[in-house]
Amino acid sequence: MKNKALLLGTTGMLAAAARHAAMQAEEAVIVSRHADSFSFGDEALDAKCVSLPFSYEDEPALLAALESHAPFSLALTWIRPRAELLRAALDALVAPGGTLIEVMGSRSILAGPNGEPSIASIRADALAHQPDIAYAQVVLGFVRENGASRWLTHEEISAAAIAQMEMPLPRRIAGTLEPWDARPQ
């Protein structure tokens, strides 16, 4: 089986992590609205990338396009929680023995208004029943410095995603999530 990476929604803040994944892969499939104009700026690296310029608006078409490139040994994703069909189908695109890493915002760990489980917990529980793939989350927090808070930089976000590629944990928090009231506004 070919060592393929799926890089979904990774051309912005996760570009350094996407580069790391693409360097390890024989082929990388990059999916974003502007994938056709994305470049790592490295001719050899760009040559092993397939660009799929899709948004989440047409999840069935996106999934059909992804299925034609699957299975993936690594999937690194940043997708909004509302893309439920896409999120639920990701595990089927990962090869046995592969890894699915989902990057999620800080609100992904919050329970629903009526005590419903968080999206991060729902995903972790669902993927726990997929013993053939490794599942890891990166939850994005914030940084407290000198009595003030700031959001993570692109470098800090990518560093957490790369750490998950190198040594996956069930959940890795990038920055901190506490105190919740101290997060930047």
Rank of each mutant, 00 (worst) to 15 (best):
residue 50 V to T: 15
residue 54 F to D: 08
residue 183 R to D: 07
residue 85 L to Q: 15
residue 14 L to V: 03
residue 102 E to Q: 07
residue 95 A to M: 03
residue 169 L to A: 13
residue 155 E to K: 14
residue 47 A to P: 06
residue 120 A to Y: 06
residue 81 P to D: 14
residue 28 A to V: 11
residue 141 G to N: 05
residue 175 G to K: 03
residue 159 A to F: 03
residue 1 M to I: 03
residue 157 I to R: 05
residue 177 L to Q: 04
residue 115 G to T: 11
residue 116 E to H: 12
residue 67 E to D: 12
residue 49 C to S: 15
residue 109 I to R: 05
residue 32 S to N: 08
residue 138 V to Q: 07
residue 120 A to I: 00
residue 160 A to W: 02
residue 140 L to M: 15
residue 154 H to P: 05
residue 110 L to K: 05
residue 99 T to Y: 05
residue 56 Y to M: 12
residue 109 I to T: 13
residue 25 A to Q: 08
residue 74 L to F: 06
residue 57 E to S: 09
residue 33 R to A: 10
residue 137 Q to L: 01
residue 177 L to C: 06
residue 128 A to P: 12
residue 178 E to F: 07
residue 58 D to E: 15
residue 86 L to Y: 08
residue 181 D to K: 04
residue 48 K to V: 13
residue 169 L to P: 00
residue 68 S to Y: 08
residue 179 P to E: 12
residue 114 N to D: 15
residue 31 V to R: 00
residue 180 W to E: 15
residue 125 D to Y: 12
residue 59 E to P: 08
residue 119 I to Q: 04
residue 123 R to N: 12
residue 153 T to L: 11
residue 25 A to H: 02
residue 169 L to G: 00
residue 5 A to N: 02
residue 163 A to P: 07
residue 93 L to Y: 04
residue 118 S to R: 09
residue 117 P to C: 12
residue 88 A to G: 08
residue 108 S to D: 03
residue 7 L to E: 07
residue 44 A to W: 02
residue 4 K to V: 01
residue 56 Y to K: 00
residue 38 F to G: 03
residue 180 W to M: 12
residue 12 G to W: 07
residue 113 P to Y: 12
residue 92 A to T: 13
residue 118 S to T: 06
residue 42 D to V: 03
residue 107 R to M: 09
residue 33 R to V: 06
residue 120 A to F: 02
residue 9 G to M: 03
residue 179 P to V: 13
residue 60 P to S: 11
residue 117 P to Q: 14
residue 178 E to A: 14
residue 1 M to S: 12
residue 7 L to M: 14
residue 23 M to V: 14
residue 12 G to I: 08
residue 52 L to M: 09
residue 87 R to A: 10
residue 28 A to I: 12
residue 183 R to T: 07
residue 53 P to R: 09
residue 28 A to P: 08
residue 132 D to P: 05
residue 158 S to K: 04
residue 76 L to Y: 01
residue 11 T to V: 04
residue 78 W to H: 06
residue 165 M to Q: 14
residue 15 A to H: 11
residue 121 S to H: 15
residue 38 F to K: 01
residue 58 D to Q: 13
residue 46 D to H: 10
residue 67 E to C: 10
residue 78 W to Q: 00
residue 148 A to T: 10
residue 183 R to P: 06
residue 136 A to F: 00
residue 133 I to R: 01
residue 64 A to Y: 08
